[in-house]
Amino acid sequence: MTHDPDFPVYPHRHLLGIAGLTPFDIDLLLNRAERAVALSRQTDKKSSVLRGRTQINLFFEASTRTQSSFELAGKRLGADVMNMSVASSSVKKGETLIDTAMTLNAMRPDALVVRHASAGAVALLAQKVGCAVVNAGDGAHEHPTQALLDALTIRRAKGTIGGLTVAICGDVLHSRVARSNIILLNAMGAHVRVVAPSTLLPSGIGKMGVTPFHSMADGLKDADVVMMLRLQRERMAGASVPSVREYFRYFGLDAAKLKLAKPDALVMHPGPMNRGVEIASEVADGPQSMIQEQVEMGVAVRMGVLEALLDPRKNPEAGR
């Protein structure tokens, strides 16, 4: 591997969350991701920058999309990628976490990509291993690569993030995507709004650097970006909202509601979508939709993150 003078050394060992990153760190990761976009659009998509490195995707919670995205990212960079899906049903949840981490650590991976249903679980695991750890989502805490891919999507479409008005709509309470995005967008100088029924907003939301709205009409007015969140099925019927039809009526994004935003507003969704629940097909597949672009940027951002964390200018033996 060669010295890569285009980018400064990334000053963190892991990517556990957006919290703790400076705008400089975020720009660095996005710039690396930009180059990965170019690579991914070539016929020969393979680089050898991570040749000989081992990446393990450790998913305690199933996620086909995120896992494939990380897998492809590692493979495009030449790493050896192994996927491990750990069923949490056989053993009491969490009990296997540290054991599994220690076992995998003994196989000397260079990067561990971890998804877990419990907030803080990935950070806990990172304390026990001697390699770079990427948080691929921990409970309702953070999902940093999702926020980065959203940022890259916005930056490429709008040229900048600072000064934009971004409306995050839906189940903010249970969403790690929302938390990571709120932190990142604030760090980059965007105006962040959240739009949801109060039962889906966390306590203290007004102090989280966002302006809360409870109607789409107010929340979407003059927005540059409309970011929809997925509503988990178990929350649909009576638990947090009375019914799907009521939710869609007031908080689902359709063409009429989208008209309230700026005419060139971007429509985003982290996927997988519940069509007819939080988003109408006419919008999801419409000209303002960035949803497919987000998937493409997902691979690029994960390539950028892996490259930055496994930069050969860092000490690969650090912490072993």
Binding site: G120, G139, A140, H141, E142, S203, G204, M208
Partner: peptide, 12 residues
Amino acid sequence: EGLFASWLGLPG
């Protein structure tokens, strides 16, 4: 329950 729990993503 409160702001701190909200940031940690833990139910309050």
